[in-house]
Nucleic acid binder design. Structure first.
Lengths: 414, 414
DNA sequence: CTCTATTTTTTCGAGCCTCGAAAAAATACT
DNA sequence: AGTATTTTTTCGAGGCTCGAAAAAATAGAG
């Protein structure tokens, strides 16, 4: 802790700054980079010259858009797609998908596969994962031998070191150190990420204006998950991967949750809970294992048609989400929310009760100004988040082969 | 954002590192500082020589504890008490207290005063504050003309810039920009802090082993407040000063809270709520304005004596706190908790129900291992926290007169 | 009392890094 | 073709940290 700054760290960090500026801006000129980083032109010139020499950046000759200004035209710097590549693995319920992404962020190969995650034994599940990765790595059509990083995302709880899955709803298995397994198998550094966290990462890259420093991504799926960005950084718990929004308590002693406890938000707002309420099975009914997306859409359609138990089920979901968000907002103050997943497609049914509930909470003071976006399909987001996360790791590994310190914040609270 | 590191920032930061190492360690030798900061001996020698020359540090000639080792003895570096001083102001219900603290952290003057905050008009409240500060500043017994910073703490919500009180239970007044007022009056930089945050800051200095990177300070007083430290940094909300733990929703539509809403944790666990339940006044009864500490202690005594409504009231408080903590732990994972304030003295009555409740939540998985400390007196903690906060500001202002950047973290989520 | 071993602290030159100013490069306008 | 303008590179200056060596300060041994 509290480590000083060495002289050589300086260059490393400023290199990082330049790379990240290029990744963010697309094709910034040296002048633009100097402006955003606050470093001098000479420094940017020196660093980018190094980076180009090392094949990390390249000058984009694309002299399109004939310069309107006079003077020497700016020459854009771009990430060299061939500098490296990363591999993403997304493991979700009964579905496994991998993609290879080049250093500039383009997908250059992918493969998807259905499998029965709920019943699969440990060896087989791990085997499927390593096999699909191996097929991509050994694909003769692709000569990307330089996969620099693997990011694997899974629904459920991962440890705070991003090494292992601790628990997941997609399998009864627990404690699988996927990151270590993949690293051991392929000798490529790997991380194990939480799916909702990756959604949040992706949203930030997709819409940096809307999702900048503070926002919330909530997965409305069979379970309820959350990815939380606070002060520009992904918020993860102290031990595990992060905010188990779905297991905040909505009603003490209330409806039976998939986790075995009672009254969690998820026990009212998860697909199985909506299903259970819509079918009027009672709050003590054992959660069903899975409800297909199609079934959920049918349910939503019926709820829109008539004021029956289906509509009431969505109302209850909205209420639980609203009070949950209200409590969350009491802690972190209101922030933009993105609702993701199949039930986000039914957000019209959820929103009224949600807003009504949130207005009754401390966090709901500005209830009207809280905005919700919806995105029914979580998979592309998760994969995109994984890709960006892996690429950012590469950005840092390439420029900073040494120890990366937590930005010498050092200063203690006070 | 994403600002690069300049060459001269380097020295500034390493100076900061040295100062903070000295503040933390007490009287470390140059060698010890070199070890903890990771900088070379030469660098530490140069920096500390500068700091001594500027009167910020001083060599502690205190050759006490005759060195047992041979070789040149280490010479301890200490903060020079006369380098600066800070002033703390703590404004709580019907009570105003100020203290002057030297650069080494010793209280060198103080003054306290009772006043009727609940009915006082705006001008008068502000006037009392400025007057008491002025008396300390003009005290002829004290020749500390170099007050470098004022930190003012208040119960309630402050803005995220630490400039103004937005709302407080101790007065019906709102939006008082205390920091600006004091700065304008005395020309000394000032900040407006939340009391519970200061408690957390103080706990971290008092018991760094127990309260290090992640912990929670909860104020059990008339209202329920929280100071939260995550990953070594004080957690504050995006807009306001921070976690309104007391206004997380315990029971939707439940007991009437002082804030006007229903079902907040505070509506079950605040002094007025315990009082209301103990007197069996019903959950809709308007919260009383204040319950004296003595009354609360009497209540607790009665609850210990017999199993009546008083005991039940504490049980309900424990339950609300337990479920609230459970939801909080779902978000941030379990962490050590310090219970502060008069009702922390009745924690024996609260704890059983609290633990029972927390065990029913997702965060309570390791319910047994969560530890609670109690500290019945919040005032000294708040003042201490203010002092440390102000001193830390001075540490930074003295060494880094320029722009202080948020430790060039720059790197975006991903 | 002197000498030696040991530990801390300072000194000094080397190597980097960033910066500002000036030069070079590349284009639009006249 | 020449000038104005903007971007990028070059170059020397000034700072900072580091490692090695020197200096300082003490305990223990004889």
């Amino acid at each position: 802790m509290s480590v000083g700054i060495r002289h050589d760290d300086l260059r490393r960090r400023n290199r990082a700054m330049v790379i990240s500026a290029v990744r963010r801006a697309g094709q910034p000129s040296r002048t633009e980079i100097a402006a955003t980083t606050g470093l001098s032109h000479s420094t940017i010139s020196a660093i980018s010259s190094d980076l180009i020499g090392e094949g990390i950046l390249s000058e984009s000759k694309a002299s399109e858009a004939v310069s309107l200004k006079r003077g020497r035209p700016q020459v854009g710097l771009a990430l060299n797609p061939e500098a490296a590549a990363v591999l993403t693995v997304v493991l979700s319920l009964n579905f496994l998908s991998v993609a290879v992404i080049d250093y500039a962020g383009q997908v250059i190969a992918e493969e998807q596969r259905r499998l029965d995650t709920l019943t699969m034994p440990r060896d087989e599940l791990i085997g499927e994962c390593t096999a699909i990765v191996r097929r991509r790595l050994e694909d003769p059509d692709l000569d990307v031998q330089n996969i620099a990083r693997i990011a694997l995302a899974i629904q459920g709880i991962t440890d705070s070191d991003a090494r292992a899955m601790l628990w997941s709803p997609i399998t009864p298995l627990t404690n699988i150190a996927f990151a270590d397994i993949l690293e051991g198998e392929f000798g490529i550094p790997a991380t194990m990420e939480n799916d909702c966290n990756m959604m949040a990462v992706a949203l930030r890259w997709r819409e940096p204006d809307r999702y900048r420093d503070d926002f919330i991504a909530i997965l409305l799926s069979h379970g309820i998950g959350m990815g939380l960005v606070l002060k520009g950084e992904l918020f993860t718990g102290t031990h595990s991967s992060g905010g188990e929004f779905g297991h905040m308590i909505h009603r003490p002693g209330g409806a039976l949750c998939r986790c075995g406890r009672r009254g969690c938000v998820e026990a009212y707002a998860g697909n199985y809970a909506i299903w259970r309420n819509a079918k009027q099975m009672g709050e003590d009914a054992e959660p069903v294992a899975d409800v297909s997306d199609a079934d959920m859409r049918t349910l939503a359609a019926r709820a829109r048609e008539a004021d029956g138990p289906e509509r009431e089920a969505y109302r209850k979901a909205g209420e639980a989400l609203g009070f949950g968000l209200g409590s969350l907002f009491a802690l972190i103050d209101p922030a933009p929310v993105a609702m993701v997943g199949v039930s986000a497609g039914a957000f019209d049914l959820i929103e009224p009760a949600l807003r009504e509930a949130i207005a009754q909470t401390a966090g709901g003071q500005h209830s009207g100004s809280i905005s919700f976006d919806t995105e029914p399909n979580e998979l592309p987001l998760i994969r995109e988040g994984c890709a960006m996360r892996a690429l950012s790791f590469v950005d840092q590994e390439i420029f900073a082969p040494g120890i990366q310190m937590r930005a010498g914040s050092g200063k203690s609270v006070a």
